[in-house]
Design a protein around this nucleic acid. Structure first.
Lengths: 347, 347
DNA sequence: ATTTTCATCCAAAGCGCTTTGGAATTTGGA
DNA sequence: TCCAAATTCCAAAGCGCTTTGGATGAAAAT
């Protein structure tokens, strides 16, 4: 009963109606009477009718799929940040009847994939992940006319496309200022890859805070790489080994911050006492306790939920697909400072 | 030039050939001469021809998409384990010309989604994540005839479907035995949700090791929940507060093990000295240092790369789609014990 | 009673591809 | 030289849906 698939033709024959009417009834067109519509819906339910996605996609030009192309360079994009973003986005998609499609690609393939996506509508839109300082995808997508929303943003105060970003600059500036207020002067920045826009902006925020207080920027205190735990550990160890080591650390991600914690432990430095650690926190779900009890923030942080961002980016994209000539939407999310136990006044 | 899309009809008109011949030339059929094929391929390249996925899917019944349905219950499946699995799988898919599709679903929707998937081939196959002890999806998928591979496996020594699993039982048994050999008698198990098959098997391994050495199983030393960091912390804190606290801990995931580390620090217990911590390690990429220097394993572990598992599951599934009546393939991956600095002889 | 409107419904033409069942041409064997 | 067997190609029929451009009959207006 549940297994044999019925198509429109069969369903309409069963009902003694034309395919047109059945299709319209099911898709909520006004030209069909409520009585007929009800009958059609019941029959569809009963016969377990499901329209073929490829057929309707072929007929309408809409795939009901949203694409995510993820780089597979050595700097992997598929990481806990990404999966939390996906968790949010896929939830939005499911609610709106969209599916989420992922294609792994080397950076060189990426442009070609977008063309491929748009050529015969494999997807109705894409979200652009990890915009670089020098970003080319945006122009490409504009030119081929594939709806997109950027998670993050490219340079400039561009309002010619939709994006959602956190205010990275002010977030890190806030964090750095807090550490300065605690008396710290030697503050390290363990940043993400600065070829990426978000990391570049964070760097600016860090530098702005130092400059406001007349603190010289010491390149030896700054590092930039993929944000994972071992990197956080190594970068911290390295800086602690300096002749004039930093007394405070700012991390671009909770992942590297965890590595920093490990390094501090290694040196028997008590966070909040002998050393201060602060981080940008994407509120990764695997670090969130469900019941809200005794979790992080044990670390001082500025935070913004990347999962919420995913949810919202999905909404923006779906809205854009529904109305492609609506003006672009740009959202800049603020973060707020949460003081934890990992920072303290400079002894 | 790159923007206007050419379809088969136009391409064949341009070439002065029939659509049949062009289609066959492009799809490598033997009925077309090499000379014609070359000409067709060149023209396709030149005119930037790309076949429409929905059209070919409609015509062939193949979507070239592999589906992953992920539960969105409070026990989220989208976590760092999942994203590492995806990283491996998507790489395999891309190589084989498949896309990866994700659909978020509540557990009640799941069966319906599989039917939806198969009804008019939205996807060509699915991978089943997180099989439960009491698993119903497998029978469903068999009955509706949708190719699938299970990451993990259901109960029994089933060989009626394809799966890839790590030998969870022996892995945890190995780990527990190692701790026993170090003299530990009070060993805690911080397990995953034991309604899930893998966690159930790990529990069995733990119990087997204890029983082999005549150590009584103390329910107070065992907990079971979603494997995240706060849970690992809380479970560890709880057990350390017992009258007769454990001297060693076995964690089901590196995520909860990190929470355990934090708890140990909280109690000023030095791992490897005052307390022993050991874990199952999925080799999550965000914890792997790229260059292989001074990374984990700082923790004693049994490990198996979940990313490799994703890669392999993808291969198995694609092979099965290519030849649906091939016998099922079952792979049980062994783990090996890596001794780190987090365990030591009982003082 | 006749014409205008709605309200309902339908036949048929695509959407762009694959594939069946030949037809036309070339090659090889006798 | 002639016929059978390859080789190379094609017209046309789907695949299952949406949508255009009416047709039909009933209700409303004249």
């Amino acid at each position: 009963m549940s297994n044999n698939i019925v198509n429109l033709k069969q369903l309409s024959q069963y009902l003694g109606l034309s395919q047109t009417t059945v299709s319209r009834a099911l898709n909520g067109f006004p030209e069909v009477s409520e009585r007929t519509r009800k009958k059609v819906q019941e029959a569809a339910e009963k016969l377990n009718y499901r329209p073929s996605p490829s057929a309707s996609s072929l007929a309408t030009g809409k795939a009901k799929i949203i694409g995510h192309v993820v780089p597979v360079s050595e700097h992997r994009m598929i990481n806990p940040h990404f999966s939390d973003f996906l968790a949010g986005a896929s939830d939005t998609y499911a609610r709106a009847g969209y599916d989420l499609l992922i294609r792994a690609a080397t950076p060189e393939q990426e442009a070609d994939i977008y063309r491929d996506f748009v050529s015969r509508n494999r997807v109705d839109g894409v979200v652009v992940h990890g915009p670089m300082v020098d970003e080319s995808r945006i122009e490409l997508l504009k030119s081929i006319g594939l709806p997109f929303v950027v998670h993050g943003r490219a340079g400039g105060e561009e309002h010619s496309y939709s994006w959602l970003d956190v205010d990275n600059r002010s977030a890190i500036e806030k964090l750095t200022n807090y550490l300065i207020d605690l008396g710290h002067r030697r503050i390290a920045l363990v940043n993400g890859l600065e070829s990426m826009n978000f990391a570049h902006r964070r760097r600016l925020g860090y530098e702005a805070a130092l400059q406001q207080h007349g603190i010289e920027i010491d390149p030896a205190l700054i590092s930039s790489a993929d944000m994972n735990e071992p990197y956080g550990y190594e970068a911290t160890m390295e800086k602690l080994a300096l002749d004039n080591p930093p007394t405070a650390f700012v991390y671009s991600s909770i992942l590297s911050a965890m590595g920093g914690m490990r390094a501090a432990n290694m040196h028997s430095l008590r966070p909040g006492k002998d050393i201060s650690l602060a981080t940008f926190d994407d509120q990764l779900s695997f670090l969130q306790s469900k019941n809200g009890a005794s979790p992080p923030p044990y670390m001082t942080n500025v935070s913004s939920s990347i999962q919420e961002a995913g949810r919202r980016v999905g909404e923006l994209l779906i809205a854009q697909i529904a109305d492609p000539k609506a003006p672009p939407v740009c959202e800049l999310w603020k973060t707020n400072l949460v003081v934890g136990e990992s920072t303290g006044r400079l002894a």
